[in-house]
């Protein structure tokens, strides 16, 4: 099932602790999975018996931003977990931060 991603929306993994916040996403429908299982939008709850796919267990890190190859879609990981993020069949990448000097 595809989901519409809206900036500010929260998603959580159905099989691990991962939580995401959508930073930006062009309008459209997306397939987003974590640990091989589709992610849950908002307050939706996971079905019984789902398990993390061991081949999709690269893990997510709190505070990292995950993007697609073109950096059109960006998610902030607000809670880390064991699963890997896959968007429309392609693994998401950690966005390389441009380090700014602390200004406040």
């Amino acid at each position: 099932m595809a989901v519409a991603l809206k900036a500010g929306a929260k998603l959580k993994s159905a099989v691990c602790d991962t939580q995401l916040m959508v930073v930006k996403a062009p309008a459209g429908e997306y397939q987003l999975s974590c640990g091989g299982v589709e992610m849950l939008v908002g307050t939706a709850t996971a079905a019984e018996g789902l398990k993390l796919d061991p081949s999709q267990a690269g893990g997510t890190l709190i505070g990292k931003r995950y993007v697609d190859a073109e950096e059109k879609i960006e998610m902030l990981c607000t809670k880390g977990g064991q699963g890997s993020l896959v968007l429309n069949g392609v693994a998401m990448q950690v966005k390389q931060a441009k380090q700014l000097p602390s200004s406040d």
């Binding site: 900036a7 930073v23 709190i62 990292k64 931003r65 902030l76 931060a97 700014l100």
Partner: peptide
């Protein structure tokens, strides 16, 4: 709005970038 401030923070600060001993 929340979106303005979050955009500023996420766009200009790296999460957990401070060292243990840092203080502002």
């Amino acid at each position: 709005r929340h979106e303005n401030l979050m955009s500023y923070i996420v766009g200009t600060v790296e999460f957990g970038a401070a060292a243990e001993d840092d203080a502002v």
